[in-house]
Amino acid sequence: MSGIGRKQTPEIREIRYRRLSRPVDSLEITTIKALRQGAHESEFTGPQRIDFELIVWIERGTITHEVDFARYELGPGDVLWVHTGQVQRWGDIAAVDGIMCMMPATALDTALTDRLDRIGGWARSHWPADGSGAAQDFAMLLSHYRRHRDLAGHDAEAYDAAMVLLTSGVLMMLASRDLGDTKSEWGGHELLWRFRAEVDRHHAQRRSTRWYARRLGYSERTLHRVVLAHLGVTPRQVIEDRMVLEAKRMLVHDSGSISTVARSLGFDDQSNFSKVFKRSTGLTPGEFRTSSR
């Protein structure tokens, strides 16, 4: 994988972004075919955690791609956006071709990342080829980069910087258009995206709805009312769901004991952790680990 450094662990492959000859806050665009030809087949098996933004546009073929335990059936024209820190698992990568864009999250325009927080754009990964135009716009941008970047000569660095800005703009349109339920849920109230951001940061240490309400400057009653009205679940459920996602990642991709996972997520008692996990998934942590490996 040109431009990407790799570190192997027993359970999960850590995929790190590393520019070889251009600024770190740059982007790399290549084809799936070129990526596949430059790496051993084994590098696309098993789970991978990436520390950069990965956007894939499928041009030919079909593939099943898993992102944080959600499975996406991708076909021609579909766009998949895997975010920094997410765990992905490729299907049969030899069955597809298309264009891939990779960049560190720090390369994204701050106005874009703020807007994504507000509308809940980070919550979505898959945009099907439904004729909305956003996916096609993105594919055209990537194709343009592939054709013209080498012609930039000594101005290639400036060309890359301009392309990062253009890519940020297209990603903004992609996340804003046709968000459907995702937009109506997370984009309806400022409190929602602020609450989500705090839960992302503190779910392993804090599970009290009152703590989050105070931190956000709202009453617990207001937080409960807004979250329930827009998401159909309680704040407690949002916090628990985020904790369970992290638990799933650790159970499947790390070799630590269940008690270690429980302690990492703020549980002093493994039995309490197991009870919460089973209530959410229907499986004990041990059963989930066995069935998912």
Rank of each mutant, 00 (worst) to 15 (best):
R49K: 15
D97G: 07
L20K: 06
L151V: 04
L245P: 03
D268T: 14
T234G: 09
D241Q: 15
T182S: 11
F277C: 07
E59P: 00
V87E: 01
H154K: 11
T222D: 07
G282W: 09
W193N: 05
R13N: 08
L116D: 01
A129E: 06
S219V: 03
L27I: 08
F288H: 12
Q37S: 10
L223N: 05
Q48L: 14
S176P: 00
R249Q: 14
I32M: 09
G256C: 11
Q48C: 13
D269H: 15
S2K: 11
K33A: 15
Q37D: 14
M1F: 10
L108W: 05
M100D: 11
I93V: 15
I58G: 02
S274T: 15
R207C: 00
M173Q: 12
V226D: 02
I15P: 00
E59Q: 13
D150N: 12
K278H: 11
V238P: 07
G187N: 06
P104F: 07
V96A: 05
H148A: 09
D200P: 00
R49I: 13
A158R: 14
G98K: 07
G61W: 07
Y72R: 04
Q86D: 06
A139Y: 11
G133I: 06
F267S: 06
A134F: 02
R214G: 03
R146V: 11
P76D: 06
A158M: 11
E66F: 00
I239N: 09
A156I: 13
V233T: 14
G75F: 08
I58H: 02
K33L: 09
K7F: 12
E246I: 00
Q136P: 00
H40A: 13
T222V: 12
M1R: 08
L151M: 10
T84G: 01
H203A: 10
A105W: 06
I99P: 02
D130E: 08
S21Y: 08
F52W: 04
K278M: 12
V244E: 12
G98R: 06
A158S: 12
K7A: 11
R177G: 01
G46E: 06
V87Y: 05
A39L: 15
F69T: 01
D241R: 15
R6M: 09
M250I: 12
D92I: 05
Q205M: 10
L283Y: 12
I99C: 03
Q8N: 04
P104G: 07
